[in-house]
């Protein structure tokens, strides 16, 4: 294992930044959701890197739980998107500006 861990951390910071940029700029709700997944993957990558650097399996256990929570989050989030689409017939975040059902 000769790759220094700082390379992985910088890579995950860049990935996190790309995810933030997508959430801020894109208007499609589904693409915003995918960008949130990008940010979760950046966090997972840095956790695995720390698990290797500190020689502790606990970081990998954290990533395992993050995977489970991400799956549950995607299921509920896409259910909400489908429900919003039934009401408004749009997936554009600019047009979902009212909380009135």
């Amino acid at each position: 294992m000769s790759i220094p861990s700082s390379w992985y951390l910088i890579l995950s910071a860049i990935l996190f930044g790309i995810g933030i940029f997508g959430v801020l700029v894109r208007r499609n709700v589904l693409v915003m959701f995918m960008c949130i997944e990008l940010m979760l993957n950046a966090a997972n990558l840095s956790l695995v890197t720390f698990s290797r650097t500190l020689n502790d399996v606990g970081g990998q256990a954290d990533v395992f739980f993050i995977l489970v929570v991400a799956a549950a989050e995607v299921v509920v989030g896409l259910g909400i998107v489908v429900t919003i689409f039934r009401r408004r017939a749009t997936a554009n975040a600019d047009e979902i500006s009212s909380m009135k059902g």
């Binding site: 294992m1 995977l67 991400a70």
Partner: peptide, 27 residues
């Protein structure tokens, strides 16, 4: 791939199965 490079083999497999296999298909 980077998980495997860091010897997190199980997480790499779960990543492919859960993320690429389930979440993206759901998307």
């Amino acid at each position: 791939v980077l998980f495997i490079e860091q010897q997190a083999d199980f997480l790499a497999v779960v990543q492919v199965i859960v993320y690429a296999g389930a979440i993206v298909v759901l998307f």
